[in-house]
Structures are given as C-alpha cells and as structure tokens.
Design a binder for these strands. Structure first.
Lengths: 163, 163
DNA sequence: CCTGTAAATGTTATAATATTTCAAACTTTG
DNA sequence: CAAAGTTTGAAATATTATAACATTTACAGG
C-alpha cells in the first residue's frame, strides 16, 4: 500500500479513489471475500471525499445512479466493508469513511475537523499502547477501540470553511 | 469528590447515586446552574446503574413516574447535564452514563464491557498526553476526544453474564 | 408587589439513523 | 444439474434525535 494524501490539503483525489479500489480488490481476493458491484460502488461513494458520508447519503447517491436501493442494501454493504477493514464508522458522526490503512492491522485514531469536515486517520501506535496499558491496569481485555478527536485541522486554524 | 466504587464489582450502589446527586448539586450551585427537578431526576435515572442508559429508556422511566414527557424534555436535560460535565454520552452506544469525575477537568476514557454492559470511566492522563501529541504532530488542534474501549471486564473474562 | 425578560418546559410533528423479516436471485460446490 | 449458502430486493418498522412554536416558571429591577 502506497503513501497517502493528506485530506486537508488539495490533492488529486481520483488517485485516492482508484488506489482504494485497487487495494480493496486485492484484499478481498486474498480473503476470498466477494467485492460485488454494490459493495464496490458503495466503497467508491464513501471514497468520493475525505469527509465521512452518512448511510443515507450513500443511499441517495445510489438512487441517483438509478439503483433502486433500500436502507438495508447500504447497511449491508457498509457492514461488509467494515468487516474487511475497508471503511470505518465514525461513531460520533454516525457516518462512514474510507480506511486509509486497509490491509494493515490497525486500530485507527481519527482527527475530525469541525470546520471543513475532513477526517484524517492515523495509526498512532503510542496511543494504542497507552490505551492498552490503561485498560489492562484495570484488568480489562480491550477488543475494540473508538478514538475520535474533534477539533480544527491546520488549514482551518488559519482560514475557515475549506471544503 | 470522594473515592468511587468499581462498576464491575458488587457495591452499595445507592451510595454512588447519592454521592453523584450531592456532587451535582454542589457543582451546579457553584456554577449558578439550575439543577431543576427534571434535570435532577434524569441524572438520578442515569445513575441507577453503571450501564449506559438510552434517552428513550430515561423517557420511559419518566413516564412510569407519571411524568408525561416527550423526547425533547429528556434530550434537553441530558444536554444540560453534559454541559456541566455530570453525564457523558457514549457515542458507540448512543447512550448516556453518569460522570464519575464530575467537577474535575477531564476527558474520559470509557471501558465498556460487552458482556455485562457496565462501563468504567478512567482519567488516563498518559493516554490524553499521547493523543494530544499525535494530534499536534499533524498540526491539528484537538478540542474534544471520544475514547471508548469495548471489551471484557475482569469479572466477565472469568464467568459470563454478570449484571 | 408588579412586570418585563430570560430560562425552562410542554407539545406536536418530523427528521435521521438503523434493523427486522421474509422472499427472490445469484454463486459456488458436490 | 441440484443443493446449500450467500447476496440482494422489498416492505415495514424500530430507534435515536431535532425543529418549531406555545406556554409556564424564575427572578431581577422598578
């Protein structure tokens, strides 16, 4: 998996999308998982920007594709994509975002800009370490970590309302 | 604010509740905030256990009190309690839990047992430190951190289905 | 005590998010 | 091909949250 663009900075986003799709195909093949047309399309829609997309936003776009989909279609696709680590759910926003570390074994940390809406996913191993330490100090067996940081990205600290 | 019981272990929970209410009254007085009967009752309901309670669970209990409440009543009370740091929202569960560090300046970390449902709130300053470090390394100004760890509490690692 | 003002609550309706259920179509495998 | 399992379609409904506006309550200043 190659280097990634930084959401907050302008970049050729088509490259992000096609990289994500290529990776996804490879990952699914390796895992014998079926990246069906619907699933692939949902992944592509999720990747249309670095802003999290709600399930109903995805649904609306599927509809404007001409695809007559109902909510379960979208949620099922999203479940599949999550299970295979291709998208993440941002709990604090009830929305979904493409995973920039697909295939890697990771538990991400998300930096969510409240001004422009872009989200950066980080690996932050030092954070994970401390989280595990804190948990095991309490005898707690950590299985799944939700770590979402809302704030202001570098660009929006300077000037507001970037896209 | 005095020492707290550990949710996972049996304890005199009435003491938790009255401690929480006493603290809340003191905190609101200090801040010139009005802990009205509804707000206090909602806080008490949230504190009825160490398991997060959904807004509609609170609503149902208000109704069985004989109080004919609608959703906004509950959400408003919860907003107030959150603003004053008396309850926390657990984003990954869409539910609310009493704050065990009310009055202290903190950004909590939550250990959520997927078996018994109890939640322990930790201060974990080392984690906060690493989170801030990771964020500022990206030039990101962190304002609000959601940190929720799902897993198994000590008791449920041994035997399942504690209450 | 009145009264103006702000804060809090009541009330109705609706928006936004997510799941259940059962049926039909498609894929894979024997 | 047939059986079995997986995926998708479709309708209904559940769950969570907010908008908008009316009414009531608290309380500070006159």
């Amino acid at each position: 998996m190659s280097a990634r663009a930084i959401p907050y900075r302008p970049h050729n986003h088509d490259a992000c999308v096609s990289l994500a799709l290529t990776d996804a195909r490879a990952i699914c093949q390796r895992r014998n998982a079926r990246l069906t047309p619907i699933r692939e399309r949902v992944l592509e829609l999720i990747w249309q920007s670095h802003k999290p997309l709600g399930a109903y936003d995805v649904l609306a776009q599927l509809s404007s594709d001409g695809h007559n989909a109902a909510p379960p279609t979208v949620y099922r696709a999203l479940d599949f994509l999550q299970q295979h680590g291709l998208v993440h759910r941002i709990a604090s926003l009830n929305a979904f975002i493409g995973c920039t570390h697909a295939g890697e074994n990771h538990s991400g940390m998300f930096l969510i800009c409240r001004a422009c809406g872009n989200v950066l996913e980080l690996a932050a191993p030092a954070v994970s370490t401390e989280v595990c330490k804190a948990a095991s100090k309490e005898g707690f067996r950590a299985e799944d970590t939700t770590l979402e940081v809302a704030g202001l990205c570098p660009r929006c600290q300077a000037e507001p309302d970037h896209d």
